[in-house]
């Protein structure tokens, strides 16, 4: 039986503690926004999820390039794993944003540039998954996926800067928009946001480590299965 690294178990515990602390900060220590009320607090995990989504897609592009240069399968495992985690967190970002939008914008969804580009970005990475499942040869699959991950990454900066490039009702969190519409946050809110961003980054690393292990085990099992079929 294959065992997971003890360092990964340590990371699991650290991640769990950080996550609980982040939840406590959001629920009990941050003040409610005077205009939006309690729903504004969704923003801490919403922004962190969106951040992890984009970070994951960036890593998938970097590891895609790594695979094309080195031809080492580990880069493909990192890229595949990062895309899967990026998709999960991007979907969390979209759903949590939608729940925030209902009382604030009076609608679950609007074709605002940020929302639209995020939806397109998610569809692009869903297509990445479809591409992988559509190619049988492992080397060709890894090569196509690496090229797709690099080209698909173009959608990420486009999504990130969409609130600066187009007229939008989506709040600008980092820096000020052209209209000066940055969020008005006090020190406690900023500290909580930074803590949540760090926590989600650690959570991403933990999930990534587990997912890479899973990809490696999948490859080993496939090889064993192939060998056992040859023995028949």
């Amino acid at each position: 039986m294959m065992k997971q690294s003890k360092w990964l178990t340590v990371l699991d515990v650290i991640t769990g503690l950080l996550f609980l602390t982040a939840l406590c900060l959001v629920f009990f220590f941050t003040p409610e926004d005077a205009m939006m009320g309690a729903v504004q607090k969704v923003f801490y995990f919403h922004v962190s999820s969106a951040w992890v989504g984009m970070l994951a897609f960036f890593l998938s592009a970097i590891s895609g390039a790594g695979y094309l240069i080195k031809h080492n399968r580990i880069w493909d495992h990192v890229s595949e794993s990062a895309v899967e985690i990026g998709l999960v967190f991007s979907v969390i970002g979209i759903i949590s944003g939608s729940i925030w939008a209902k009382p604030i914008w009076n609608t679950w969804w609007t074709w605002d540039p940020r929302l639209t580009t995020t939806a397109i970005m998610v569809l692009i990475y869903l297509a990445y998954r479809m591409l992988r499942s559509g190619v049988d040869d492992p080397d060709r699959k890894a090569r196509y996926a690496a090229i797709y991950a690099i080209v698909g990454f173009l959608s990420v900066p486009f999504t990130f800067f969409s609130i600066r490039l187009f007229r939008t009702i989506h709040p600008v969190v980092i820096g000020l928009s052209e209209s000066g519409g940055g969020l008005n946050m006090d020190t406690v809110m900023v500290r909580t946001l930074v803590f949540c961003l760090c926590t989600f980054t650690v959570l991403f690393c933990t999930f990534l480590w587990h997912r890479i292990n899973l990809a490696q085990l999948t490859e080993t099992v496939d090889e064993l299965r192939f060998m056992s079929e040859e023995d028949k």
Binding site: G37, V39, I95, S96, I99, W100
Partner: peptide, 11 residues
């Protein structure tokens, strides 16, 4: 908006 806050975190 408290209900939306709880719903957001549950999801």
């Amino acid at each position: 908006t408290g209900n939306y806050f709880v719903a957001g975190y549950v999801v």
